[in-house]
Design a protein around this nucleic acid. Structure first.
Length: 657
DNA sequence: ATAGGGTTAG
C-alpha cells in the first residue's frame, strides 16, 4: 500500500523534472506551473493545496489558459482558487474571473460565464460596475485569444440583472474600444428597455440600429411587436407583423404569442382566437401554437370570467398534443378561486400533483387570496399552514395577501402578529404590508397603533414611502389632529422626501374640513400642479358654502385644464349632491342625463344621493322612475338604500306586503 | 425573447 503511494509520488517528481529540463534556464515559476498542471490533470487537490501559498495572479491565469480545451477542469481549478483563502484577494479573483469568462464563452458555456459575471457585479459578490468588468475582459482579451462574444455575454449579464444602463454603457464602451456587439446583444438590451418600461428609449435605439450597421432580425421585430402590444396598440403590432413578412423575415411562434397575449390583455378575445386559428395560415404552415400560446388564451378567458371557454381551450391544447404546465393550472386555479369555487381550485392542485407538476408559491398565493376574499379565514390560514409544512417558500405576495386578507376581515391584530413573525424570520420586508396595516388602523381610528407601525418601520431601517406618510397625514387630519399631521409632514421633509399631489390634496381637504379655508387656499396657491381631486375638493367646498360663482369658476378651470378628462364621475356626484341640497331636483336630473350622454356611468353614490333626496321631496312614482332609469344605465344600486327605500315601493306596486 | 399571483394614501 505504501509502496503504491511512493511509486506514484516518485513518478510525479520524475515527470516534473523532465518538464523542467526542457527549459535551458528553468524559472521557478515554470516549474511551479508544470507541477500545477500535472496535478490538476489528475485532480490531486490535496497535493495542489500545498502550492496554494505560492499561487500568483499570472500563474493562475496561465494555468487557466493552459486548460482552455478542457473548460470543465479549468472551472474546477478556478473554483478551487476562489475557495483557498490564501489567494482569495479581490484582485486575484477578478483577474482569474476574467480569464475564466473568456474560456467559458470560447467553449460556449454561456450560463457558467454569465453566473461568474453576475457574481462579480452583484452586491453579495464583488459589486463591480459593468464597465469595470469590461475593462478587465479587454485587458485579458488578447492573451486568451477571445472573441467579441464575451462582450455580448456581458451585455446579457447586465440585462438579466435588469440593468439597462449598465448594458448601454457596455455597448458604447465596447464600440469605443474598436469592438462591436452583435445584433443579439442589441436585442437583449432593447428587450431590457421594454421590461423596465423605458419605451421612448427603446424606440430611440431601434431607430439608430440601421445607421450603426445592424440588420433587424426576427427577434428585433418581435420586440417591436411586443412594445406595441404593451401599449395595447394591436393594430400597429399586426402591421409590424406584415412589415416583417415584407422584409422576408419569417415570424416564429413568439411573434404570434406576443400578439395573442396582447389581444388577451386588452380583452379582445375575438382577435386572440382569430390569431390562434390562423397561425398556420399566416406562417406558411411553419408555426403552430405552443404552451405559451394556449396559456395566454386560457388566462385571457379566465380573467374575463369565462371559465367554460378557458376549459374548452385546455381541451384543444391537450388534443393538439401540447402538455399543460404549471402556468396552465395557475390560470385555472386562480379563475376557480375567483369564481368562488375554491374546492375545484384545490382539486386542480391534486390533479397537477398527480401529473408530476409542482404546486408552486404563485398558485398557493392565488388560493389563499381568494379564500380571504370569500371571508374564509380558517381555510386561508390552513392553506398557509400547508405551505409551511411543505417548506414552500413564502414570498412578498404571500405576505401582502395575508396581511390584507386578515385586515379586511377585521383581524388587524392578527395581521400585526403575522407581520411581526415575518420580521423575526428575516424574510423580505415589504413596505406595502406595513402601509396596509397603517391604513387599517387609520380606518379604525386607532391612530396610535398606526403611529406605532411607523415607529417600527423606522427601527427596522425600512425606507418609508409617500404612501406611508400620506396614510398617516390623512388619518390625523381627519381626526382633527392637525399638529401631529404637520409633525409627520415635517418629518417627511426632513427625510428629504418630496410630498406628492395626493398628500397636498389630503392637506387641502383636511384644512377645508376644519374650516380653515384661508390656510387651504394658501396651500392650493402654492401647489404647482393640481389634478381632478384638487378641483373636486375645491368644488365641493365652494358649493357647500353656497359660493356658486366660485364653483362656476372652478368648473370652467377644470374644463380648460384637460378638456373633458378632468371632469369625473366624482365631479358630477358633487354637483348632483349640492343641487339636491338646494332643492333643485330637476337640475340634478339634468346633470344626470348630461353625464350619461357623456358616457360617464353613474355609480352607487349617484344612486344613493338621488334616490334618498327624491324619496324625501318627490313623489313615489318619481323615485321608481329614477330607479328604473338608473338600472337601465347599468348602475349598481346602493344596497342599503335600495333595500330600505326602493324595494318597499316596488313591492307595494306589485301588491306584495 | 413571449404566458401566472397583490394594490397600500387624497
Amino acid at each position: 500500500m505504501f509502496g503504491h503511494v511512493f511509486s506514484r509520488r516518485t513518478s510525479f517528481l520524475v515527470r516534473c523534472f523532465h518538464v523542467a529540463k526542457k527549459f535551458s534556464n528553468p524559472e521557478p515559476e515554470d516549474i511551479l506551473f508544470s507541477a500545477l498542471c500535472l496535478n490538476l490533470r489528475q485532480r490531486r487537490w490535496n497535493t495542489l493545496h500545498q502550492f496554494s501559498s505560492s499561487l500568483t495572479n499570472p500563474l493562475i491565469s496561465r494555468v487557466l489558459r493552459e486548460f482552455r480545451s478542457s473548460p470543465k477542469l479549468a472551472l474546477e481549478f478556478y473554483n478551487w482558487v476562489l475557495r483557498s483563502n490564501t489567494v482569495a484577494k479581490s484582485e486575484n479573483r477578478f483577474e482569474a474571473s476574467c480569464v475564466m469568462i473568456h474560456l467559458l464563452v470560447g467553449s460556449r458555456r454561456f450560463d457558467d460565464a454569465l453566473s461568474i459575471m453576475a457574481n462579480l457585479m452583484s452586491v453579495e459578490g464583488e459589486k463591480l460596475s459593468p464597465l469595470h468588468v469590461l475593462s478587465g475582459l479587454i485587458r485579458s482579451y488578447q492573451a486568451c485569444g477571445s472573441s467579441p462574444d464575451v462582450f455580448d455575454s456581458l451585455v446579457r449579464a447586465c440585462t438579466q440583472n435588469g440593468d439597462a444602463q449598465g448594458a448601454y454603457e457596455v455597448i458604447e464602451q465596447t464600440r469605443a474600444e474598436g469592438f462591436c456587439v452583435s445584433v443579439h446583444a442589441l436585442n437583449n438590451f432593447m428587450g431590457c428597455l421594454l421590461n423596465v418600461n423605458e419605451i421612448d428609449r427603446f424606440w430611440k435605439v431601434y431607430k439608430e440600429m440601421d445607421s450603426l450597421g445592424y440588420v433587424e432580425n426576427v427577434n428585433t421585430f418581435n420586440l417591436v411587436i411586443y412594445s406595441f402590444c404593451k401599449e395595447s396598440k394591436l393594430f400597429e403590432a399586426l402591421s409590424v407583423f406584415y412589415r416583417m413578412l415584407k422584409c422576408g423575415v419569417w415570424p416564429n411562434v413568439v411573434s404570434f404569442n406576443m400578439m395573442i397575449d396582447g389581444a388577451c390583455k386588452t380583452g379582445d378575445m375575438r382577435f386572440a382566437l382569430q390569431l390562434l386559428g390562423k397561425m398556420g395560415m399566416m406562417s406558411g404552415n411553419f408555426v403552430s401554437p405552443n404552451a405559451v400560446t394556449y396559456n395566454s388564451v386560457i388566462n385571457g378567458f379566465c380573467k374575463a370570467g369565462r371559465l367554460d371557454l378557458a376549459e374548452r381551450i385546455r381541451g384543444d391544447m391537450v388534443k393538439s398534443g401540447v402538455d399543460c404546465n404549471e402556468r396552465t393550472y395557475g390560470a385555472l386555479v386562480d379563475a376557480y378561486g375567483r369564481a368562488g369555487s375554491s374546492d375545484e381550485a384545490l382539486r386542480l392542485c391534486d390533479e397537477m400533483t398527480s401529473k408530476g407538476l409542482v404546486v408552486n408559491t404563485v398558485i398557493y398565493n392565488s388560493i389563499v387570496y381568494w379564500l380571504f376574499m370569500e371571508g374564509d379565514i380558517e381555510g386561508a390560514m390552513s392553506v398557509l399552514r400547508d405551505m409551511n409544512s411543505k417548506n414552500m417558500q413564502i414570498d412578498r405576495f404571500t405576505q401582502a395577501i395575508v396581511v390584507r386578507g386578515l385586515c379586511r376581515n377585521g383581524y388587524v391584530k392578527e395581521a400585526v402578529e403575522f407581520q411581526r413573525q415575518i420580521s423575526e424570520k428575516k424574510l423580505v420586508e415589504d413596505i406595502v404590508c406595513h402601509n396596509t396595516l397603517m391604513h387599517h388602523f387609520v380606518r379604525d381610528k386607532k391612530l396610535a397603533c398606526a403611529d406605532q407601525i411607523l415607529g417600527s418601520m423606522l427601527v427596522q431601517g425600512l425606507s418609508l414611502d409617500a404612501i406611508s406618510f400620506g396614510t398617516l397625514i390623512d388619518g390625523y387630519l381627519k381626526e382633527g389632529k392637525l399638529e401631529r399631521a404637520l409633525e409627520i409632514y415635517d418629518g417627511m421633509i426632513k427625510m428629504n422626501k418630496t410630498p406628492n399631489l395626493v398628500i397636498y390634496n389630503s392637506i387641502v381637504n383636511g384644512l377645508s374640513k376644519r374650516g380653515m379655508a384661508g390656510a387651504a387656499e394658501a396651500v392650493v396657491n402654492a401647489m404647482e400642479i393640481k389634478d381632478i381631486v384638487t378641483y373636486n375638493t375645491l368644488l365641493n367646498e365652494s358649493l357647500k358654502t353656497g359660493n356658486v360663482e366660485e364653483a362656476d369658476d372652478i368648473l370652467s378651470k377644470m374644463q380648460k385644464q384637460d378638456g373633458e378628462k378632468s371632469v369625473s364621475l366624482v365631479t358630477y356626484n358633487i354637483m348632483i349632491n349640492h343641487l339636491c341640497k338646494f332643492g333643485s331636483y330637476e337640475k340634478a336630473k339634468e346633470v344626470l342625463k348630461f353625464m350619461v350622454e357623456r358616457g360617464v356611468v353613474p355609480d352607487s353614490i349617484t344612486y344613493g344621493t338621488l334616490i334618498t333626496s327624491f324619496s324625501k321631496h318627490r313623489s313615489q312614482e318619481k323615485v321608481v322612475e329614477l330607479h328604473d332609469y338608473l338600472i337601465l344605465q347599468g348602475v349598481t344600486p346602493h344596497e342599503h338604500i335600495y333595500l330600505s327605500i326602493v324595494r318597499p315601493l316596488l313591492d307595494r306596486e306589485n301588491g306584495r306586503p
